[in-house]
């Protein structure tokens, strides 16, 4: 068995050593999932299909976060986006279901112009990204658990404590406001 592995890992052979390029394969796979389903979310004729495309995008992006060593952000992404925002969106789709509106009767010209605008912006961004030297380290850091560092940064009075508390108050105010706005009026 080990002789077989030696045989497979010898670089002079024509057989590609897949363990060496596994990060690349995973990256391109997850990126394809994220971008492909984002396009489905942007262009699917039915809104419910767009919502499910968005779910696949969230999972693909969470996997990319995990590959970037951001374990806490990856799981927050799944819990908050898939467990919270996406459920809200699906509720919104269901509560506002109308046959012609939920079929998304976009004008063909509008859609074509939007796709051209998006494609042009993407070309400009790729050109700009390729032509820029970013002031970052040459090699990424070693992946290590980030939860403790994030918790300490959020509760550090010298660090992010005040923004963290402000975000908490903002979330509370937004949710109370949303509950107030979304209530059904009996007297109307």
């Amino acid at each position: 068995m080990s002789a077989l592995l030696d045989h497979l890992q010898r670089p002079t052979l024509g057989i590609p050593d897949l363990t060496a390029v596994l990060p690349e394969i995973l990256f391109y796979g997850f990126a394809l999932v994220a971008v492909g389903s984002a396009m489905a979310a942007a262009m699917a004729p039915k809104i419910v299909h767009a919502a499910f495309g968005l779910m696949a995008t969230f999972f693909g992006v969470a996997a990319l976060y995990a590959m970037l060593g951001a374990d806490f952000v990856a799981f927050s992404q799944i819990i908050v986006y898939v467990g919270g925002i996406l459920v809200l969106l699906v509720f919104g789709v269901l509560l506002t279901a109308r046959t012609e509106a939920s079929l998304g009767l976009e004008k063909a010209t509008t859609k074509n112009f939007a796709i051209i605008a998006g494609g042009l912006l993407f070309a400009v961004l790729v050109f700009a990204i390729g032509g820029t030297t970013w002031p970052v380290a040459n090699a990424p850091g070693e992946p290590e658990p980030t939860t403790e560092a994030i918790g300490r940064a959020f509760l550090d009075p010298e660090g992010m404590l005040i923004p963290f508390e402000l975000a908490s108050v903002l979330l509370l105010a937004a949710l109370v406001g949303a509950a107030y706005l979304a209530r059904r009026r009996r007297d109307a």
Binding site: A34, V35, A38, K111, A114, I115, A117, G118, L121
Partner: peptide, 11 residues
């Protein structure tokens, strides 16, 4: 991803 979002918002 941003351009896909832009297409959705515009169209």
């Amino acid at each position: 991803l941003f351009c896909a979002g832009l297409v959705a918002v515009l169209s």
